[in-house]
Amino acid sequence: MIIAMTAFKLPQPITTKEARRVFLGTAPTYQGVPGLFKKHYVLSEDGGTAGGVYLWNSREEAEALYTNAWRAFVAEKYGTEPTVTFFDSPVTVDNLAQQVLADEA
């Protein structure tokens, strides 16, 4: 599994209430994306940085999302360029599902 973390510094800080409204507006576009298990929208405590934490099946499926078109959408929507950082995630603990998920050895 792969974790992708996206971040973008906002031109002006926003409140959690504003972020929730904006994030709910884009959330449906991530439903049904091949290989995407979960996405967490995030906002820094000072409201100046937003982004997402994504849990993916594979790096290839993740990279299929972060295209130039996706980057342009983020830049237009939030007024800033996003960064994307990838991490290997060999083990995930999911307390809601009461599971421990692991990549194949």
Score class of each variant (00 low, 15 high):
32 G>T: 04
32 G>A: 05
32 G>I: 04
32 G>N: 10
33 V>T: 15
34 P>A: 08
34 P>F: 15
35 G>N: 06
35 G>L: 01
35 G>P: 00
35 G>D: 09
36 L>V: 04
36 L>G: 03
36 L>H: 02
38 K>G: 10
38 K>D: 14
39 K>A: 08
41 Y>I: 10
41 Y>N: 09
42 V>M: 06
42 V>R: 03
42 V>T: 11
43 L>V: 04
43 L>P: 00
43 L>D: 10
44 S>Q: 05
44 S>N: 06
46 D>M: 08
46 D>T: 02
46 D>S: 05
46 D>G: 09
47 G>Q: 10
48 G>H: 06
48 G>V: 00
49 T>G: 05
50 A>Y: 02
50 A>D: 02
50 A>N: 02
50 A>H: 00
50 A>V: 08
51 G>E: 03
52 G>W: 00
52 G>V: 03
52 G>L: 05
53 V>L: 10
53 V>W: 07
54 Y>R: 14
55 L>Q: 10
57 N>G: 05
57 N>H: 14
57 N>P: 03
58 S>A: 10
59 R>D: 00
59 R>E: 06
60 E>S: 15
61 E>V: 00
62 A>R: 02
62 A>Q: 03
63 E>C: 10
64 A>E: 13
64 A>Y: 11
65 L>K: 14
65 L>V: 13
65 L>W: 07
65 L>M: 15
66 Y>I: 09
68 N>G: 15
69 A>F: 13
71 R>K: 12
72 A>D: 15
72 A>M: 06
73 F>A: 09
73 F>T: 06
73 F>Y: 11
74 V>H: 00
74 V>P: 13
75 A>R: 12
75 A>N: 12
76 E>G: 02
76 E>A: 08
76 E>C: 01
76 E>K: 09
77 K>G: 05
77 K>R: 15
77 K>W: 07
77 K>L: 07
78 Y>K: 03
78 Y>D: 01
79 G>T: 00
79 G>S: 11
80 T>F: 04
80 T>M: 11
80 T>P: 07
80 T>D: 13
81 E>L: 07
81 E>W: 08
81 E>Q: 12
82 P>K: 07
83 T>P: 05
83 T>G: 04
84 V>F: 07
84 V>D: 00
84 V>E: 10
85 T>C: 11
85 T>L: 11
85 T>D: 12
86 F>L: 09
86 F>I: 08
87 F>R: 07
87 F>W: 12
88 D>C: 11
88 D>W: 06
88 D>G: 06
89 S>T: 09
90 P>T: 03
90 P>H: 04
90 P>I: 03
90 P>S: 02
91 V>L: 10
91 V>W: 08
92 T>L: 09
92 T>S: 12
92 T>P: 05
93 V>T: 11
93 V>C: 12
93 V>A: 15
94 D>K: 07
94 D>G: 05
94 D>R: 13
95 N>K: 14
95 N>V: 01
96 L>R: 12
96 L>W: 05
98 Q>T: 01
98 Q>A: 05
98 Q>S: 10
98 Q>W: 07
98 Q>R: 11
100 V>Y: 05
100 V>W: 03
101 L>M: 13
101 L>D: 09
101 L>G: 08
102 A>I: 08
102 A>M: 14
